[in-house]
């Protein structure tokens, strides 16, 4: 079932691209881009939803409502759902597209592994899932060589006897850049900010380690996918390059996409705007001056 719906079409698409471009490395890159394009509506929906959620989290009225019920979790959740409903925000709107994309990513990985068949047994299995309109005899063998890499083996650029894992380094770097530039702004003391930071530190190393261990074909897919994702988000204006390159001007924060136009129930609880009074230079100097003992 899984093979028929996901792996087989993906494998055949990958083989078709390989046949057309006659280069497996380029085929993996094109295949990744095609899948990214196909899943673009899901990505856009996910981004839109997460933006709306993010904006709502920063909204003072929403914050006030949540603060009001901070000691009553049930009521707070109820109120939260009410606001979501009023504003047409689906709380699962951002994670559902992600969940839908999971089988696609796993299928993509499996199809790349299938196409890189390197034993008679794997070739038998590959031949079995090739659609009749693709002549397996014309497709096989797949040329695994791409630039200096053997896509069926873990990638190393050999300089004398030293093998440098260029692809793994690139995967690590692009995963870091991707997490950094796409990280949404969060409050400093926020728990989610701490989690995001941990993720941002761990993920690149994990991906880099996988790229180091797995065959180069898969590492190439990781790299192409990272670059495509950053490009996709960049095109949507959701990438902050100033987090990587300090000389780049940070983008203007997008205006709140959720207009909180609901009627306030408790007008008297409208929070007083906090008055920030800048102390005068003299006052400030006075405060810093040590008191002289008499």
């Amino acid at each position: 079932m899984w093979d028929t719906i996901i792996v087989q079409p993906f494998t055949n698409l990958l083989l078709l691209i390989t046949m057309l471009v006659k280069n497996f490395g380029i085929a993996i890159i094109l295949f990744t881009l095609v899948i990214k394009l196909i899943t673009y509506p899901l990505t856009a929906k996910q981004l839109k939803s997460s933006m709306a959620m993010q904006d709502l989290q920063n909204d003072p009225v929403y914050k006030k409502r949540m603060a009001k019920y901070k000691d009553n979790r049930e009521k707070a959740a109820e109120e939260q759902m009410k606001i979501y409903k009023e504003k047409g925000i689906s709380p699962f709107g951002s994670c559902l597209p992600t969940l839908v994309q999971f089988p696609i990513i796993i299928g993509l990985y499996q199809s790349i592994m299938r196409v890189m068949a390197s034993t008679p047994l794997e070739l038998v299995k590959l031949e079995r899932i090739v659609y009749p309109f693709l002549d397996v005899n014309k497709i096989l063998p797949i040329q695994n060589r791409f630039l200096w890499m053997d896509l069926g083996q873990p990638e190393r650029l050999w300089i004398g006897t030293i093998g440098i894992p260029v692809l793994a380094i690139l995967v690590l770097a692009t995963t870091f850049i991707q997490s950094k530039v796409m990280q949404p702004p969060t409050q400093g003391n926020d728990q989610s900010a701490a989690m995001n930071n941990s993720m941002m530190m761990m993920m690149p190393f994990m991906m880099g380690w996988m790229a180091y261990q797995f065959s180069a074909g898969l590492a190439l897919y990781f790299l192409a996918s990272n670059i495509a994702t950053v490009a996709q988000y960049s095109a949507m204006g959701r990438v902050d390059w100033s987090k990587i390159f300090p000389w780049v001007k940070p983008p203007e924060q997008p205006k709140t996409s959720v207009v909180l136009d609901y009627e306030e129930e408790d007008e008297e609880e409208e929070p007083e705007p906090v008055k920030v009074v800048k102390p005068s230079a003299r006052a400030s100097a006075k405060r810093q001056r040590p008191k002289m003992k008499k």
């Binding site: 728990q191 701490a194 989690m195 941990s198 993720m199 761990m202 993920m203 190393f205 994990m206 380690w209 996988m210």
Partner: peptide
Amino acid sequence: KVLRLLILLILAG
């Protein structure tokens, strides 16, 4: 939460 996440990531890795 952060500790849990770290353990999860290490296990996944």
